[in-house]
């Protein structure tokens, strides 16, 4: 089943909001389980679970910090071990990471731009976002190529103490900056060759919402509304 881009954006925005509104661990477990099941069906399943695996040490550290130092400040130590707080906060962090990975996997840049345009966000904002998204891959390719080039000339980027590492990375960042400025100049020229002006209007193509789309959108908005009422008005 294919969902409309607007449905996907509403779903993920609602899920992110819920991750912060939940106050019970069971609520977090429920939403995390749903997201993990959805991730299994993603075409980028291996990538999602691979990245979760890489981030495992972060979750472990988060658990210990929240369990043992949850009431610690620079000036006072209240002490106390709270495993539930540790588990809750770690699960919330885990859920946010899963949601971020799933968002990137399920919502393509085209869908995101089309969805935002249909929400009547300012044209300048949507066009700039679309252009930026298209160029992320260019900058990322440049970064990898520069890094490989410098490593091939004997530069150990991740060796030495902090100051040394910062100095090493300057050898990557400087050419990257220069390339980005050059690319930006080329982009301006290319836009002029395509007679571009911000007064023109792009047509961002969005289809009609289906019944299932409406059902998902209203359910998610209703759930968020319910938790807002519970947390702030009840």
């Amino acid at each position: 089943m294919r969902f409309d881009p607007r449905t996907k954006v509403v779903f993920f925005v609602s899920a992110f909001t819920l991750a912060f509104l939940f106050t019970e661990i069971i609520e977090l477990i429920l939403l995390t389980s749903i997201m993990l099941v959805l991730s299994i069906f993603s075409v980028e399943r291996d990538k999602i679970f691979g990245r979760l695996k890489i981030m495992a040490p972060v979750f472990v550290v988060a658990f210990f910090l929240w369990t043992f130092l949850n009431q610690y400040s620079l000036f006072h130590v209240y002490g106390g071990v709270n495993v539930m707080t540790g588990a809750f906060m770690t699960l919330r962090l885990f859920l946010i990471v899963v949601l971020s990975l799933a968002f990137v996997s399920f919502v393509t840049p085209v869908e995101l731009v089309n969805a935002l345009a249909s929400f009547r966000l300012p044209y300048k904002l949507v066009f700039t976002l679309g252009l930026s998204l298209r160029h992320i891959s260019t900058i990322s390719d440049e970064y990898i190529a520069i890094k490989e080039g410098q490593a091939s000339r004997g530069l150990e980027l991740d060796k030495g103490f902090l100051v040394r590492r910062i100095k090493n990375y300057a050898s990557v960042v400087m050419p990257l900056l220069i390339r980005s400025i050059e690319n930006a100049e080329k982009l301006v020229l290319a836009m002029e060759l395509k007679s571009f002006s911000l007064s023109g209007r792009r047509r961002y193509s969005v289809g009609k919402l289906g019944r299932v789309d409406y059902a998902v959108i209203f359910s998610m908005v209703a759930v968020v509304f319910m938790f807002l009422v519970r947390n702030f008005l009840w």
Binding site: A145, A170, M174, P175, R179
Partner: peptide, 14 residues
């Protein structure tokens, strides 16, 4: 042991 010269020199000048 292995010298590697990439295609685009502008990417590597520091």
């Amino acid at each position: 042991y292995v010298g590697f010269v990439f295609q685009d020199p502008d990417r590597h000048i520091v």
